[in-house]
Design a protein around this nucleic acid. Structure first.
Lengths: 256, 256
DNA sequence: TTGCTTATTGGTCGCACACTCAATAGCATC
DNA sequence: GATGCTATTGAGTGTGCGACCAATAAGCAA
């Protein structure tokens, strides 16, 4: 009888518990959406009471913002790692484009759409979105500068090139919730061709066979997000039926 | 004493009432967000009881979808009119880009971000989003084909060119809730340069002084949306304090 | 004027949410 | 083994939402 629900309290250090909460919130944000990051939902996932989540995040808005930051940073580190020991800048750039056209990338696209919309109403989240946009710009700019230094790329304004590329990727990702099967080839290659033009590369360079060198092309969004958390304590993986989180955006601040 | 609230019932024809409801919902969607399109909110705006809205839209999801369609179609008709009696295709295209970099365009960008996110959870809305995307593609493709026929543009695939342009505009519009003040010139011109490249136009053609000919460049998003409604009966304009609609997305379908 | 159709109301129900706070019980320390 | 700190619970408050339905009254037709 005592097997169904957890009856004994498990007392953890604040740091471990907080990390666990953030990791869970980030996973929910990535797979189900930021509106699903609620006190109840996170608590249920961790088999604790909602009040405990409130204890660590007195304002739920902060938890949502933290969930987004953690998830987005984890993805960024996977897609555009800060350390690039295994290949050239051109190879890492080619790998980035390869990953961004894969199906696993849809989760990230959805997360960004979600965050950009929700940030309309949530100042804390908006600040985090801006910060993560800058982080992405920086990361890609650094890659480009490195490539320029090695003579792989040629551009007079690495940051402008980086932002142009990211804008196009945002445009392509905007349709992550729609059907994109009959997308013309020139559209599917739009990010690539934008990069090739901005970096003065011969057309076809970045998606040529072998353009990624020996870099691995597999990754799992969820795992990447969890790896971004300092210490993701024993997070019980629970099969989740995605509900309908579409109604949570507009009401929260009405009571403020 | 009887002036504060409306006490006498006003009975309208179903067609007029329905049009009034849709027009109001579309205006709320455009200015405050789709999550603010609730039975209570629309009813309050029209000084009727929420039950009446339910009577015309037994499922609230249908009302939200209708609000999006109406608002988006109104905007499309303003930005890319189906009839173009006052100028050449190049002039209308130049006008489109001019409008899309104006501040009034932010409302449209926000609406699309909103709809693309919300459509993740709402099948009815998703279908409408897809339909409106196709309508936008068609409208721009037709414009381009017309320009090609007149010798203004040159492309072998008008539809691909249209979609490329729209994808870039989506990418630029994705940041409608963020700060974009320090955007590099090449980024701000990205849609233009994409069009110039896809349509084989000399750089600078579309934003050259006089590129829009004598076409007017003013428009009001809200008015455009209301004009899209067949008959927007006496819609009382009420000053609205925007609340926080960010929490309404995820919960609605949980009860289904 | 009377009567009928139905647009409109008023009230209710259940649900999910964030937030609050006193009471409880792990667990480390002595 | 007793003690104290505090992580954690349990219970409750108030809000907004969609959905439902019987009662009401507006306005047209006879």
């Amino acid at each position: 009888m005592s097997s169904s629900v957890q009856r004994k309290r498990i007392r953890k250090s604040p740091e471990a518990r907080r990390a666990e909460i953030v990791a869970t919130a980030a996973r929910i944000a990535l797979t189900e959406g930021l509106e699903c990051v609620t006190l109840r939902r996170v608590a249920e996932e961790l088999s604790v009471r909602p009040g405990l989540i409130s204890h660590y995040f007195p304002s739920a808005e902060d938890l949502v913002a933290e969930a987004f930051s953690t998830a987005a940073l984890g993805e960024l580190d996977t897609l555009l790692p800060a350390e690039r020991p295994d290949g050239t800048p051109a190879q890492y750039l080619a790998r980035y484009f390869a990953l961004s056209s894969g199906e696993a990338y849809d989760d990230i696209s959805r997360l960004w759409i979600n965050a950009r919309h929700l940030s309309r109403y949530r100042p804390v989240l908006r600040e985090r979105v801006t910060r993560m946009e800058l982080a992405s710009d920086d990361r890609l700019e650094t890659l480009i500068l490195d490539g320029v230094a090695r003579g792989e790329f040629r551009t007079g304004d690495a940051r402008s090139a980086a932002i142009q590329i990211l804008v196009v990727l945002d445009g392509l990702g905007a349709h992550a919730n729609s059907d994109r099967t009959d997308r013309p080839p020139a559209v599917a290659r739009l990010a690539l061709s934008t990069a090739e033009r901005a970096l003065d590369l011969p057309p076809g360079t970045l998606d040529a066979p072998g353009a990624t060198g020996t870099l691995p092309l597999e990754y799992s969004p969820t795992e990447a997000a969890e790896a971004a958390v300092p210490r993701a304590a024993a997070a019980t993986t629970v099969a989740v039926t995605v509900a309908d989180p579409a109604d949570t955006a507009a009401e929260a601040d009405a009571d403020a």
